[in-house]
């Protein structure tokens, strides 16, 4: 066997695929190859599972150790780590759970996973300069509607039909996991970096649509319309104040070229 073939056979054995590696090892003598391989396999699974549980402690708690072990193993078979840094393994976890649990009684697990992954993303997102309020105030009134107010990278929005924020909070120290009805949604969540931690806030639907529009690259005017569509009484001044106060907004870039067409004055 060439080195490349040996390595591929070794990996196949670790993922429970048919492999000739055990015979190749046994041919060289020494302790039983299958048993030695099982050490690697167990180690690989345990490392993956524990890294996953660090990123998704609430999902792990909801599942319990035995079911989480099964779930992590299934997930690892579908989405093995492709990087020496195990942090990234959680990226497709919510989507995997959405498929795994479909519309069954545990459908809401996927949204809890999405919340936990959003927290990870906020914690690790690049830093970026915030909005310069004076620069914003210098923009002529007629150009405000066409202005693009991007959100900073460390901001995530999460909408769920389930009570995912209540579920998450109930699993924090001092919480009572038994007290929450997952069906008590919907939830509109804002996650952003605050001091040394990640802040989670339940926000209103109109605020959510306003920020969502900005995050998707919409103009100030479009975001205003999105908020109004969710709630006819949407207070854009309060929403903007909250966004600036929480440091959600990045440096504004006036959509000078195509912006003129968008601005309705």
């Amino acid at each position: 066997m060439r080195l490349r073939e040996l390595q591929e056979a070794f990996v196949a054995a670790l993922y429970d695929e048919p492999s000739s590696i055990a015979q190749a090892i046994d041919a060289r003598g020494g302790p039983d190859a299958a048993q030695r391989l099982s050490i690697y396999r167990t180690n690989l699974q345990a490392g993956f599972r524990h890294a996953l549980a660090l990123g998704f402690p609430v999902v792990a708690a909801l599942c319990g150790p035995d079911f989480f072990r099964t779930l992590a193993r299934e997930y690892q078979q579908r989405h093995p780590s492709r990087c020496g840094d195990l942090h990234g393994i959680g990226a497709p976890f919510a989507a995997h759970l959405r498929e795994r649990f479909a519309d069954g009684p545990h459908a809401w697990f996927a949204d809890v996973a999405a919340l936990e992954w959003a927290r990870e993303e906020v914690a690790r997102a690049a830093d970026a300069p915030g909005l310069d309020v004076e620069a914003l105030r210098a923009v002529p009134a007629e150009e405000l509607a066409g202005l693009r107010l991007a959100l900073r990278p460390a901001v995530r929005l999460l909408a769920s039909r389930w009570a995912v924020f209540d579920i998450w909070r109930a699993h924090q120290p001092g919480g009572d996991p038994g007290s929450v009805d997952p069906g008590g949604g919907p939830t509109w969540l804002l996650l952003h970096r605050a001091g040394r931690g990640v802040a989670l806030e339940s926000i209103g639907a109109a605020d959510y649509r306003f920020l969502e529009s900005l995050q998707a690259g919409g103009t100030f005017g479009e975001a205003f319309d999105a908020g109004l569509a969710a709630d006819g009484g949407f207070d854009v001044a309060a929403a903007l104040r909250r966004a600036v106060g929480r440091g959600l907004l990045a440096d504004p870039q006036a959509a000078s070229g195509n912006g003129a067409g968008r601005a309705i004055t």
Partner: peptide, 12 residues
């Protein structure tokens, strides 16, 4: 609409 947006920015 412009007035509302301008007021929002002015309030900052």
């Amino acid at each position: 609409r412009t007035l509302v947006l301008a007021a929002a920015v002015g309030g900052l």
